[in-house]
Amino acid sequence: MTQHLHTQADLDRALGELTLRDPRLAPLLALTGMPALRRREPGFAGLASTICGQQLSTHAAAAIWARLSAAVTPLDAERIRRARTDRLGRLGLSAAKIRTLKAIAGEVMKGHLDLDELAGAPADEAHARLIALHGIGPWTADIYLLFCLGHGDAWPAGDLAVQEAIRIAFVLPTRPGTKETIALGDAWRPWRGAAAHLFWAYYKLAKAPGFAAAPALAPVEAGTEPATKPARNPNADRRSRPEAKPAASERLKRAKP
């Protein structure tokens, strides 16, 4: 069953379940308080907004999106497909992003891509279908699934803030890479999206002036597994979830309290 985070109450419940199953997360939640649920517009407009924000600062992405959404109203697949390339370029979009938006708009118009249908698909399956599209990478897929569709198990393993928060929280010697973060996230299925919200909140706290990580933020017992290990998703796509190297689990086990 696909889990969703549509409301703040959904996130509250999900993090309550997570901290019971994996008590290592309880000290983080106690420090951050309940994170606010992040949601964006679903459908083509939400995906277009996520694409516009790729590899840009928050300020630059917001400025480009404001110009695009004002110039193309309503912003839907048909209007983007018909929009002149030079006009979109004058709004601040790069040539690569224009090609991506037009390619995706074409897939939607042809009926090859049903974004609403992705909301009900398992997170790993929906992730694999999105990254198969021209110009959509893993980060864009996961952010769209989590923020726009409310997928409770979407796991942005390539997000640097999530990786850095994990490093600080579990006192790892170095920041885990994407493959290691994917492996570590298996412990939090089917609520990896809720875990991401918690780690984003903790990252913001950890980067605030005067913050000092306390020993309590390390695992309750170094190397312990969550109280209840979730069943693996049989529909998981192997391309989007590569097998973890032994070093990933070993590094977590060696985290010093």
Rank of each mutant, 00 (worst) to 15 (best):
T2M: 10
L5R: 13
L20Q: 08
L20N: 08
R21A: 06
P23T: 00
R24M: 06
A26F: 00
P35E: 06
A36K: 04
R40K: 13
E41L: 05
F44R: 01
L47V: 11
L47P: 05
A48M: 13
A48V: 09
S49T: 05
C52I: 07
L56V: 14
S57T: 14
S57K: 07
A66L: 08
L68Y: 05
A70C: 08
A70S: 11
T73Y: 02
T73R: 10
L75K: 04
E78R: 14
I80P: 01
R81Y: 11
G89M: 08
L91Y: 06
L91V: 02
L91K: 02
L93I: 01
L93V: 01
A95L: 00
A95T: 06
A95G: 14
A96E: 00
K97D: 02
K97E: 03
V108W: 00
L115F: 12
A121L: 15
A121H: 15
P122E: 12
A128K: 05
I131G: 01
A132D: 11
A132S: 11
I136R: 04
D142W: 00
D142I: 01
Y144Q: 07
Y144C: 02
L146M: 12
G152L: 09
G152K: 07
G158S: 04
D159R: 05
D159A: 09
L160V: 14
A161Q: 10
Q163Y: 07
R167L: 10
I168N: 02
A169Y: 07
V171C: 12
V171K: 08
T174P: 14
T174W: 15
K179H: 15
K179D: 15
E180F: 05
T181W: 09
T181D: 07
I182C: 06
G185S: 12
G185N: 10
G185W: 10
G185C: 11
A187R: 13
A196D: 04
A196T: 09
H197L: 08
H197Y: 07
W200H: 08
W200A: 03
Y202N: 02
K204Q: 13
L205Q: 13
K207C: 12
P209G: 01
P209L: 07
G210D: 01
F211E: 04
A212I: 14
A213S: 07
L217T: 15
P219Y: 07
V220T: 02
K229S: 02
R232M: 06
N233Q: 15
N233T: 04
N235I: 09
N235M: 12
A236M: 14
P242A: 13
K245L: 08
A248W: 00
L252N: 13
